[in-house]
């Protein structure tokens, strides 16, 4: 029983990390159909933002610098996304292959930039003492960083849901996603909506970067470890679907946790891929499908 509860928590934790890195993509890839291979590098930018703030504030103020890193990373990565959208991506709408190659190149350039700025070695980001260690409840060990990430993801999901459902900007975003020409003729400035969407999506990647510093290495190639998982979550969940992404992240997290416990980490990676391939055979559109109001089918 303890084993099952422990692995349930691990699964939930993996799911929260997957969702955190994929949330940004549900905007840029899911809603705008932009395959942004530099998404991982925005995650890296968020992680390095934490490092820069921590270095600037010194070791005495780690909690403060970490708290500040959350909004700062959102803005830094969001701005990078905005620049990318303005300079490159808006010229390539509707050309997915070109976008893919160009953003992949941009990703490589950003990696090299990080290497030049911060060195090829990993840098150390200390967790605030509040987030050190963990607690054990009924034989289940809950580590503080993992609980923190689960909490952050929960808050972000709620914030996104409110933004999309309750604000005018969110409504415009949904309108453009469901039917771009109709939204356009109804007076929605689609270019501007695209730009906002891209800012939020990239900013969420930065936020993910802050969370990841608690668990893993912070180095120039950090993004590569997460980009594939992020795309998988969005594809399995269904394009542009917040609900789908949550379900997909949970399913993938639990699957890798339990497969790994009963086999090995390598087999779990392959096993999850196999499950995804089989699932997409059965349901190529993903878990949740967007209802579109349009004649195109």
């Amino acid at each position: 029983m303890e084993v099952i509860l422990n692995q349930l928590f691990v699964g939930l934790s993996i799911a929260s990390i997957l969702l955190l890195v994929a949330l940004g993509l549900t905007f840029t890839f899911g809603q705008m159909n932009v395959i942004n291979m530099a998404h991982g590098e925005f995650i890296m930018a968020g992680a390095y933002t934490t490092y820069v703030l921590q270095t600037a504030f010194g070791t005495g103020l780690i909690t403060l610098s970490f708290g500040l890193a959350l909004p700062a990373a959102f803005v830094v990565a969001g701005t990078m996304g905005l620049i990318l959208e303005f300079t490159v991506i808006r010229r390539l709408y509707g050309r997915p292959l070109d976008t893919l190659l160009v953003t992949w190149g941009v990703g490589l350039m950003l990696q090299q930039l990080a290497r030049d700025l911060f060195g090829a070695q990993n840098v150390n980001v200390d967790a605030p003492s509040l987030l050190d260690g963990g607690v054990t409840v009924g034989g289940v060990s809950l580590s503080h960083p993992r609980l923190f990430i689960i909490g952050v993801v929960g808050l972000v999901v709620v914030a996104i849901a409110i933004y999309m459902q309750r604000t005018p900007a969110g409504r415009r975003m949904r309108a453009v996603m469901q039917n771009r020409p109709l939204a356009s003729v109804s007076g929605v400035r689609t270019t501007r909506v695209d730009r906002t969407t891209f800012f939020i999506g990239s900013g969420l990647a930065g936020l993910a970067g802050v969370g990841i510093t608690l668990l893993g290495p912070v180095g120039p190639t950090l993004g590569l470890a997460y980009i594939i998982d992020a795309f998988l979550v969005v594809i399995v969940g269904g394009l542009g679907q917040l609900r789908g992404a949550i379900l997909a992240a949970l399913a993938l997290g639990m699957a890798s946790s339990f497969i790994e416990y009963n086999t090995t980490a390598s087999i779990a990676k392959a096993g999850v891929f196999l499950l995804i391939v089989l699932f997409l055979q059965w349901r190529p559109q993903g878990l949740v499908v967007q209802q579109r109001r349009g004649l195109a089918s």
């Binding site: 691990v10 993996i14 470890a225 946790s257 790994e260 416990y261 980490a265 779990a268």
Partner: peptide
């Protein structure tokens, strides 16, 4: 064993 570049060791540690 976990693949090179693996970032989640929670299950291994369990």
């Amino acid at each position: 064993y976990a693949p090179l570049g693996n970032t989640d060791y929670a299950t291994t540690i369990n």
